[in-house]
Design a protein around this nucleic acid. Structure first.
Lengths: 114, 114
DNA sequence: CAGCATCCTAAGTGATACTG
DNA sequence: CAGTATCACTTAGGATGCTG
């Protein structure tokens, strides 16, 4: 989804929202961070087939948009945990609704899960 | 969002759902079709800066996924109206929740509306 | 009017190698 | 471990012109 630094790039709330959560795998990332406090490579394992470059980018954007906090522990080897902010946690129920919707109303897509 | 014809391309419900509604402008299209029964060029006017090629593509995908019905009236000049299916209508409350969420929790993005 | 066909560019994404 | 850097590639998206 397009992310921009223009002053008024959005025509409506929905467009603004999807600029924040519509990126590839962003919804899944939010969902998994909500489950625990995963570390970088744990997220990579869960998501599968994500290059470190892409995961880092998505996480950085989610952090900029205030959904995710990056907690860096100064240890050797370094340990970084991700967790949701209040904003991120407020989005979890919506993700649950979306999951329910696809199961109930989109049998074709639901069948392609797993 | 990636659309695929593979047999089991999705890891979870959220990924499946975003394959259906995550395309650029798809959420906005659903929302506007829910408001009335817009014609092709009415949708173009509302969305602004959409090439006919792209709008047609998004509409066709939404139709394939069972969210939208294309009603063709055999007149001269031709008239086509789009409306929501039950599946599409069931998604409207979720879009409303998303709008509320961005207003309440994402002030930076909300400020860029209009 | 409601598209489709064609061409083209720009942005997104992946793979791999490397570093503090 | 948690990322960057670089390069190559795929895809999305726009512009334009044409048609039933």
């Amino acid at each position: 989804m397009k992310r921009t630094k223009e002053k008024c790039p959005y025509h409506c709330e929905i467009e603004a929202a999807f600029a924040v959560i519509g990126g590839k795998r962003k919804a899944r990332i939010i969902s998994h961070i909500g489950d625990g406090k995963p570390r970088f490579n744990q997220l990579r394992d869960i998501l599968e087939n994500v290059s470190p470059r892409m995961l880092a980018k998505q996480l950085r954007e989610l952090e900029e948009d205030g959904l995710v906090i990056r907690k860096m522990h100064r240890e050797i080897p370094p340990r970084v945990e991700y967790e949701l902010t209040k904003t991120g946690r407020a989005f979890i129920p919506i993700l649950d609704n979306i999951s329910d919707w696809v199961i109930e109303y989109c049998p074709d897509a639901a069948q392609k899960i797993e």
